[in-house]
């Protein structure tokens, strides 16, 4: 009896240990490429790490631990960088992500709903077409849109000129989309003035962003049973009432995670901002990630950049925790 008991215990121990054994390769890879750099970064964020320390790393004799100085410099705008204010960048960054999602999700849902109309011709063609912006490389997209907003030769100013001509104004329009620092709507976002470059980026990113939301919405729309609409039409619901009463609430479980994804994507939309505006003019379109990149790439202040990255990590963590909460709160209605 005792033997049986101990072998049972042994088996139990084995069954507890075994899963970890299977996870080991993943842990090793994660350790090398994620956790090691992460910890290293946290350490150097408390130092004056610069280019000259790259060779010996933490062993460098002149490397000094300076405590929270990097963090304080960032928060108090004490860095010798022109036009830098952490809280303004943070505010702009949040607004940028939020305003994108606010535009993309309804537009995506609306277009998906229209294209879901029964009996619509060439439905598959439209659906194939709107996936295009998603697959074009971001650099290409950014370059094309930079050209579109070119002051002299860009399509946007030409379009505005033709509209102006149509309305009786003969003077050509030369809007300096990426240079004008004067916000067109003063005081729209207190603390972080939105320059024309922001609106130009919004337009370009809209082109890039709604198709994804449409793809998600299309999938979700097709999973809504037709019976519900039939039941609603017998219940007396008009088309609009069916849209608000059935389509919107039943799309919510799919659209909220998509919106959360869209938010985080826009929040860290490095390549777009970097290629289109470079964060300018006067850092008005700078995101946290583009600024962090500047710190390393141009200024080579690794210590400050590390501290900055740790802060971004903290911000991202908060964003993640909030969005995760939202996502969980809208689990699928069908599942118990």
């Amino acid at each position: 009896m005792a033997v049986a008991k101990s072998s049972f215990k042994k088996n139990k121990q084995k069954s507890v240990v075994l899963p970890y054994f299977y996870l080991l390769p993943a842990f090793l890879v994660m350790g090398v490429i994620t956790f090691y750099p992460l910890i290293y970064q946290v350490i150097i964020s408390f130092t004056n790490f610069e280019s000259k320390h790259l060779l010996l790393g933490l062993q460098s004799p002149e490397l000094e631990f300076i405590g929270l100085k990097n963090y304080l410099d960032i928060f108090t705008a004490a860095l010798p960088v022109e036009n830098f204010n952490f809280f303004r960048v943070l505010e702009f960054n949040f607004w940028w992500a939020l305003s994108n999602v606010i535009l993309h999700v309804p537009a995506g849902v609306l277009i998906a709903t229209l294209l879901n109309t029964e009996g619509l011709w060439f439905k598959k063609l439209y659906r194939a077409a709107y996936i295009l912006p998603v697959v074009v490389p971001p650099l290409v997209v950014a370059t094309v849109w930079t050209n579109i907003f070119d002051e002299r030769y860009g399509a946007m100013n030409q379009l505005l000129t033709s509209i102006g001509t149509y309305l009786g104004n003969t003077a050509p329009v030369y809007i300096r989309w990426f240079e004008d620092v004067k916000p067109p709507i003063p005081g729209f976002l207190p603390g972080a003035p939105l320059t024309l470059a922001y609106y130009a980026m919004m337009i370009a990113n809209f082109w890039l962003g709604w198709p994804f939301m449409s793809v998600v919405a299309t999938g979700a729309l097709q999973s809504i049973p037709k019976d519900l609409y039939e039941a609603a039409s017998i219940d007396g619901a008009t088309g609009a009432q069916q849209f608000w009463g059935i389509t919107v609430p039943l799309l919510r479980p799919a659209m909220i995670p998509a919106a959360v994804y869209g938010f985080t994507l826009s929040f860290n939309l490095f390549n777009f901002v970097f290629f289109m505006t470079g964060g300018g003019p006067a850092r008005s379109t700078e995101l946290l990630v583009t600024f962090a990149y500047n710190l390393v790439r141009n200024l080579r202040w690794y210590g400050v950049a590390a501290a900055f990255a740790v802060i971004i990590f903290g911000v991202a963590l908060v964003v993640f925790l909030i969005t995760n909460r939202i996502t969980r709160a809208t689990q699928n209605y069908q599942e118990a």
């Binding site: 519900l228 039941a231 609603a232 017998i234 039943l250 209605y333």
Partner: peptide
Amino acid sequence: VAPKDRDIAMVFQSYALYPH
């Protein structure tokens, strides 16, 4: 006549209850 104006009510095979 539109379904809603026919003064009928229907019970569906799938029940078609509004899940939300």
